[in-house]
Write a protein that binds this DNA or RNA. Structure first.
Length: 283
DNA sequence: TATTGCTCCGAGATATGT
DNA sequence: ACATATCTCGGAGCAATA
């Protein structure tokens, strides 16, 4: 789906946004506004009063049904309480309510999930959708809503050890950390310039070299296995595992590798070692 | 087996540097 | 003005869990 159809929340609620201004010990602290209930109540009432017709304005430019006529995972509707950039603002402070992640889960249970699950009927489909009570976005899958709720949570779970900036997503953090480590896995074959993200490389190729990447969807999703310790890239997870275990035995990557995968890899390593003659046997 | 969470990713927007 | 860097957030695959 073209992202132009999505409500963009270009955020920066100025106060807390700058993580550098917070001492480390406060960055990940739970922050539950005393007024959270009020906020939720407000939003709920607001939702009720405004969204009974779905689109109070009636002339929303946002799309609710895809061109194909089928239901989308995300059906975008205008947020009822947004700032100019589409961001959600607290009715009290103008800032997005800050909710620690665990609290967000409670929030899901206590305030959002049951009441958010609605039977949403359109002319083209009739299916249960999960609605965010904060911004009124609707999702076909509960897990999509659950994850979306994190967007409204200013306390990020994943903190950069270099600058303290927080992210909702581990991969976003990993990608961000590359800006500190200088690891650039995506290299331009033509001029050898390297980039931290594939889309930067693609943009470069297109604008500078006039090369349009013709990736098929599957190719696009091919993973690039990057060693975040040294920038080594491998064609497979096994390859990366072998590299890391060999070159960076203390790496967190090894600790994160699932036992299952580690066992599979260990078996492979063992079988390879068994097949190759041991040096002392050669002699 | 169905659901959920984690992770990787791309698309697009915005920020920054030259 | 343009190129590049960085960020946000939804889509999707897969593994873990109920």
């Amino acid at each position: 789906m073209p992202r132009a159809f999505l409500v963009k929340r270009r955020s920066p609620p100025p106060a807390i946004r700058n993580w550098d201004e917070l001492p480390d010990e406060e960055r990940a602290d739970t922050y539950i506004p005393d007024t959270i209930d009020c906020i939720l109540k407000y939003v709920t009432e607001d939702s009720c009063s405004n969204s009974s017709t779905g689109d109070p304005a009636g002339d929303s430019p946002e799309r609710s049904i895809s061109d194909s006529g089928s239901c989308n995972d995300l059906i975008t509707t205008p947020p009822h309480n947004t700032d100019q950039t589409g961001g959600v603002t607290s009715p009290l402070s103008g800032d997005t309510p800050k909710i620690e992640d665990k609290e967000t889960e409670n929030l899901d249970e206590k305030h959002l999930s049951p009441r958010s699950k609605i039977k949403f009927t359109t002319g083209l489909c009739n299916e249960e959708l999960y609605s965010c009570e904060i911004c009124a976005k609707r999702f076909r899958l509960q897990r999509m809503l659950n994850r979306h709720l994190k967007c409204h949570n200013q306390v990020k779970r994943h903190l950069c050890t270099f600058c303290g900036k927080g992210f909702n997503d581990t991969f976003d953090l990993k990608r961000h950390v590359r800006t500190h480590t200088g690891i650039r896995p995506y290299k331009c074959d033509i001029c050898n310039k390297a980039f931290t993200q594939r889309c930067s490389l693609e943009s470069h190729l297109k604008k500078i070299h006039g090369v349009q990447q013709g990736y098929a969807y599957k190719q696009r999703r091919d993973k690039l296995f990057v060693c975040e310790d040294c920038g080594y890239t491998g064609p497979s997870q096994e390859d990366l595992y072998l590299h890391v275990s060999d070159s960076h035995p203390g790496s967190a990557f090894l600790k994160k590798t699932t036992k299952k995968l580690a066992a599979i890899l260990q078996n492979k390593i063992t079988s390879v070692l068994q097949m190759s003659p041991r040096p002392d046997e050669d002699q």
